Amino acid sequence: MTNLSELHSAIRPTTLHEEVASRLRTLIFERRLAPGAWVDEKALAAEWGISRTPLREALKVLAAEGLVTAVPRRGCQVNELSEDDAAQLFPVMALLEGRCAHEAALRATDAELAELQGLHEALELHAAAHDVNGYYRANHVFHSRVQALAGNRWLDRATNELRKFMRMLRGRQLNWPGRLEASIAEHRALIDALVRRDAHRAERLMHDHLMAQLQALQALRANESRPAPPPAPSESP
């Protein structure tokens, strides 16, 4: 008969590599492991005080999720979403998050909607301070909460799967001039629709909010890809 200590020792390796995978995701989502970067297995194993075995198992998980790519004899490289990836991802995420808003408007309790208003107030504070990083973090919490309030496990599963890739962009579109101000205005309309339990309006507003993010991201990337203007000719003395 198997005793409890044997069961505990049997599951520890799995628990460890799952914890390592979670840490790696955080590094990627926070861009401390930037798109295109190689994962330094030796350095991370030393920093975290673990062997490279659970680290490699964790990297296999992330490779299956599409966050990294394993390259033979070189290691793992953090994936980067291309313009085509973003153009295909955002419309699908807009449909999913729109549906989350629709179902949240119908199912959330009054207390839960009051909590959501509190999360919106945090967004207002970060927008007023023009704190892009703080706004991004608060925005992630807000969207995740709307998703949870929808109370649909199938919708939750599909949305979680794609949200990982959205987080790889880490709200880069917020750096486009005027996007932060536009985003908070969109959120004001959205929270109003949710509190009023206007499910159809909430769905449309959330959908359009995601598509506006895509437009800003595309504008930002187009601007970054433009060649720098040549230097102005110096005047002769």
Rank of each mutant, 00 (worst) to 15 (best):
I28D: 03
E41T: 11
E47N: 03
E19F: 05
I28S: 03
K60H: 11
A45K: 09
E57G: 00
G36E: 12
A37V: 04
V20F: 02
L44N: 06
A37H: 11
R56H: 11
S51N: 04
E57P: 00
L59Q: 12
I50N: 01
W48H: 07
I28H: 03
R23F: 04
L44Y: 02
R52F: 03
K60D: 13
A58M: 11
R23C: 03
V39D: 02
W38I: 00
P35Q: 12
F29I: 11
R31H: 15
G36Y: 11
R31M: 10
F29T: 05
L59W: 09
A34N: 09
E30Y: 08
L27T: 03
G36M: 08
R56T: 12
S51M: 00
P54N: 04
R25T: 04
L33T: 11
P35A: 14
A58K: 09
R25K: 15
R31E: 12
S22C: 10
L44Q: 03
E57S: 14
A46E: 13
S51Q: 12
E30F: 08
K42V: 13
T53F: 03
E57W: 08
F29A: 13
A21L: 09
G36T: 07
F29P: 01
E47V: 01
D40F: 01
A43Y: 00
L33M: 03
K42D: 14
A37D: 15
V20L: 07
S51T: 15
A34Y: 14
L55W: 10
R23G: 11
L44M: 07
A34V: 12
E30D: 15
E19Y: 07
L24E: 08
P54K: 05
R31W: 07
I50V: 14
A45C: 07
A45T: 05
L33H: 02
L44P: 06
E47P: 00
A37I: 08
A37E: 15
G36P: 06
A58N: 05
R52W: 01
A46S: 10
W48G: 01
A37G: 08
